[in-house]
């Protein structure tokens, strides 16, 4: 479904990605972890072309992201993305947030879009919050709206960039539960997260990144039981110790 081949990316002089190769198969859930600054966000933003890369190739469902002739907006419409800071549109209600791209990208009528949005907001447990603005919602609720917004495009795959890092601890689970339900439905997911419990429960494979490289790409059982690099071992001790 998602194929990354030898991705290189620099910001000015700093090399952020140095030859990353990975793949996410249809229906698979892959967790990406690694210390801060290791390039996780950059990598996941390459997948839908939000970050242009210097070298390498990316395809999603057989379509090249890096090809100049690819209609990037059309491709992005088929990949949902959820951000660490939610990035809901603050000038719109929850319902409008979810309907907006359906109306302007999928060209659905407003009624059609709103009906679909209501369904999706119900699915993430927010039926009662349709007309709330983002600043009237808790962090966990905002992130669930943002998941509904991504789902509103009926995506083939979902990207999550630390969806629970900005949340108060008591709200982490409500978001993880929604994500777990998605995974059970067979959604293809690439998830940057430090929630190792989620990885153990839901992921098929774990990628471990450090210094812009993918140091490990293993089935989760192997990653947690017996990581092959010292740095992954150290990282695991740190995140699992609390």
């Amino acid at each position: 479904m998602i194929v990354l081949n030898d991705i290189h990316k620099s910001y000015g002089r700093t090399q952020v990605l140095r030859g990353c190769t990975a793949a996410v198969k249809l229906g698979e859930v892959v967790v990406v972890c690694g210390p801060s600054g290791s390039g996780k966000s950059t990598l996941i933003k390459c997948v839908n072309g939000l970050v242009p890369i210097d070298r390498g190739s990316i395809t999603v469902d057989g379509v090249s992201v890096t090809d100049k002739h690819t209609d990037l907006p059309a491709l992005r419409a088929q990949i949902g993305m959820v951000f660490q800071n939610f990035e809901l549109y603050p000038h719109m209600t929850a319902l409008q947030n979810v309907s907006l791209a359906q109306i302007h990208v999928l060209k659905r009528s407003r009624a059609e879009a709103d009906a679909r949005s209501e369904q999706l907001l119900a699915r993430v447990g927010l039926s009662s919050k349709l007309s709330s603005r983002p600043d009237q919602l808790s962090g966990g609720q905002q992130q669930r709206v943002s998941i509904a917004r991504a789902l509103s495009m009926d995506p083939k795959a979902m990207l999550f960039d630390e969806p629970t890092s900005a949340l108060d601890p008591e709200m982490v689970n409500e978001v993880l539960e929604v994500m777990q339900a998605l995974a059970l439905d067979g959604m293809t997911m690439m998830v940057v997260t430090h929630e190792m419990g989620f990885a153990q429960r839901v992921a098929e494979r774990v990628l471990f990144m450090d210094g812009g490289e993918i140091l490990e790409d293993s089935p989760k059982s192997q990653f947690f039981a017996n990581p092959s690099t010292e740095r992954a071992r150290q990282f695991l001790t740190k995140v699992l110790s609390h």
Binding site: I79, M81, A101, M153
Partner: peptide, 24 residues
Amino acid sequence: GQTEAALATGMRRSQVMRLIIMPQ
């Protein structure tokens, strides 16, 4: 991040400017 989020839903740059950036 607002631009990224809007682009990620498949909007074109002109739509992002008109619907997301300008109102804010």
